[in-house]
Every structure is written in structure tokens, then in C-alpha cells.
């Protein structure tokens, strides 16, 4: 692959991802409305799709306010960290056999590393805001993400064990006969729960919990800095959906009447919709319940899944 091709792939992936993240503003509001028997935004443009433009313009032109009591530089860095770390994770996602920025041989570990860096945006954003609610949100976010990161990694290791490789390209190719969702259903469920907690989406949106903590760690943010958190959250949803599809649902594999990238996007989109459906249907657990399920139920389950997978793999290999 030439350098130019590589640059084009990077730019293309970036373009598509940012557009998806922006488009999700509309998709989420519209789908939430559908599930609540409402109509949702339907005024600007056909079916209200220009709400994306309106929202983005609004964010751009809002006053970019840094509170005088905030720690200025950390306050500025925090929202950039979340977008940066999530975008970095997309480096290893194979959209098709050709379109992949870099098929690292530590693939999944790189994804885990980047998602673990995402904690900093919450912690630093909350701390730099110098606000009680933000700090509470930051502390909740930090402990939640550390707790759920642990078994997020472990739940993926079953798939790695069956494939024998960390490379996502290899993992997809290993699913030619059967998707890993059949062999690793528990791994899928655990990974998805951890993914919701990592992106702090709605059943687990305890760091922001608007009914308790104003807006949690980003209470003090406005304008495009808030927009970065916003985009980061949507990118996070897309990332978790994409990784789920790659790991458990055969990535770009599918019947030949559609091109591989279309299969990938269809599957990813289905999971994004599932994220929104969860938001529409499930209530938020209490903070201690969240931590308790994380450490006392889900982590042992992930370990058990790993052990059983290993034992079965050993038995089959003889």
C-alpha cells in the first residue's frame, strides 16, 4: 500500500466517523421519540435531518466559557482527550479487508489501552471544573470505568483464545464458518455491558446522571467543549458497536449481494440502535448496585467464561 493510499484511508475513516457521530444526534433523538410514541425533531429539512446542522452550528456559536474558578489548561485538555482516545481506537477496526488503518498485532490490547485512557477526560474534566457535582461525577466515572474495564478485557479474551491472535483481521477471518456469538454468548453479553459502562451510556450514565448531578462531570462545559464530550460519547457508541460486530458478529463477512463495507455498517448500525433502545427502556441503577454487580457478578462470570473456554479449547485440541 502506498503512502497516499494510507492517507486517503485515514482521511476517509475520519470523515465517515465524524459524520456518523454527528448524524447520531438525529438518529438518537428520532429513534428515542419513536420508542416513546412521539415524533421527535421533524421540522428542519426532510424528516428533520437538518437538526444535525442546527445543533452543530449552535454549539459552534455558543460562548466558549471557561469558569474563573476552573483550572484553565486541564479544563481545555479534558474534552480533547475523550475524542482523541476514541478516534485512536478506530485505528484497529477493520471495516473491510482493505480498509483498515493499521492491523496491529496487539489489536485488541490497543483498543483496551485507548479506552482506558478515556477515563482521563472524565476525571480531569470533573476535577478541573472545580465544582462539587462535577467532582462527584468524575469520581463515579473513574471508579465505574476502572471496574468495568477489567472484565471488558477478560470477556474479549475468550474470542482471542479461540482465534489464537490479537489481530482483528485474523479474528474476523476465523469467523468464516460460524460467528463467535454462537461460541461465546456470555462473552458478548459481558462485553456489551462493559461497553455501555465504558461509554457511560444511559443505563449506566452514573457519571453524568442529570437527575442527581446536574450534568455530572461536564456541568461547567459549554460551546464546542461540551460538543467534544458529546461527539466523544457518540463516537464511543460507534466504537463499541464496531468492536462488538468485529469480535462476535463476523465483521465485514456476509452474503455476497452486498459489499463487505455495507455488511459492516449494517451490523454496526444495528448495535447503535440497540444502544438507543437500551436508553429508551432501562432505568439507571444505583451507584453501589452498579459497582456490586461489576465486581461481584460480572467479573467472576468473565473469569469463569475464560476458564471454560480455555478448558474446552484444550480438550478439542487434545
Amino acid at each position: 500500500m502506498t503512502v497516499m493510499q494510507h492517507v486517503w484511508i485515514v482521511l476517509g475513516v475520519l470523515f465517515v466517523l465524524l459524520n456518523i457521530a454527528a448524524g447520531l444526534i438525529w438518529v438518537e433523538r428520532r429513534m428515542l421519540a419513536m420508542w416513546q410514541d412521539r415524533l421527535g425533531p421533524n421540522r428542519a429539512g426532510p424528516l428533520g435531518i437538518l437538526i444535525v446542522l442546527a445543533d452543530t452550528l449552535k454549539l459552534f456559536f455558543k460562548e466558549d466559557w471557561i469558569p474563573p474558578f476552573a483550572d484553565k489548561w486541564v479544563f481545555i485538555v479534558a474534552p480533547a482527550v475523550v475524542v482523541g482516545s476514541v478516534l485512536m481506537s478506530f485505528v484497529i477496526i477493520p471495516f473491510t479487508p482493505q480498509i483498515i488503518v493499521s492491523d496491529l498485532n496487539v489489536g485488541i490490547l490497543f483498543f483496551l489501552a485507548m479506552s482506558s485512557l478515556g477515563v482521563y477526560s472524565i476525571v480531569l474534566g470533573g476535577w478541573a471544573s472545580n465544582n462539587k457535582y462535577s467532582l462527584l461525577g468524575a469520581m463515579r466515572g473513574a471508579s465505574q470505568m476502572i471496574a468495568y474495564e477489567v472484565f471488558m478485557g477478560l470477556s474479549l479474551m475468550g474470542v482471542v483464545m479461540l482465534t489464537g491472535s490479537f489481530k482483528l483481521g485474523d479474528i474476523v477471518n476465523a469467523q468464516k464458518d460460524m460467528w463467535f456469538v454462537v461460541k461465546q454468548p456470555l462473552g458478548l453479553i459481558l462485553f456489551f455491558i462493559a461497553g455501555i459502562a465504558e461509554t457511560h451510556r444511559l443505563p449506566f450514565d452514573i457519571p453524568e446522571a442529570e437527575s442527581e448531578l446536574v450534568a455530572g462531570y461536564h456541568s461547567e462545559y459549554s460551546g464546542m467543549k461540551f460538543g467534544m464530550f458529546f461527539i466523544g460519547e457518540y463516537l464511543g457508541i460507534t466504537l463499541i458497536s464496531a468492536v462488538t460486530v468485529t469480535m462476535f458478529f463476523g465483521g465485514w463477512l456476509g452474503w455476497s449481494f452486498l459489499p463487505p463495507w455495507a455488511w459492516f455498517f449494517l451490523k454496526t448500525f444495528a448495535f447503535i440502535l440497540f444502544f438507543i433502545l437500551l436508553r429508551a427502556s432501562l432505568p439507571r441503577p444505583r451507584y453501589d448496585q452498579l459497582m456490586e454487580t461489576g465486581w461481584k457478578i460480572l467479573l467472576p462470570l468473565a473469569l469463569a467464561n475464560l476458564m471454560i473456554t480455555g478448558a474446552v479449547a484444550l480438550l478439542i485440541r487434545g
Partner: peptide, 22 residues
């Protein structure tokens, strides 16, 4: 019950809207 909740919410996709476009 969680799964049932999710399913019932999903079914609302096919219900009539109550919104009146004022």
C-alpha cells in the same frame, strides 16, 4: 424482566404517535 422491558419498548416502534403537529 429487563429483557422483557427492552422488547416491549421495541414494540412501541410500530405504535401510533400521540404527537399532534400543532
Amino acid at each position: 424482566s429487563h429483557i422483557r422491558t427492552i422488547w416491549l419498548t421495541f414494540l412501541h416502534l410500530f405504535k401510533r404517535h400521540v404527537t399532534i403537529q400543532y
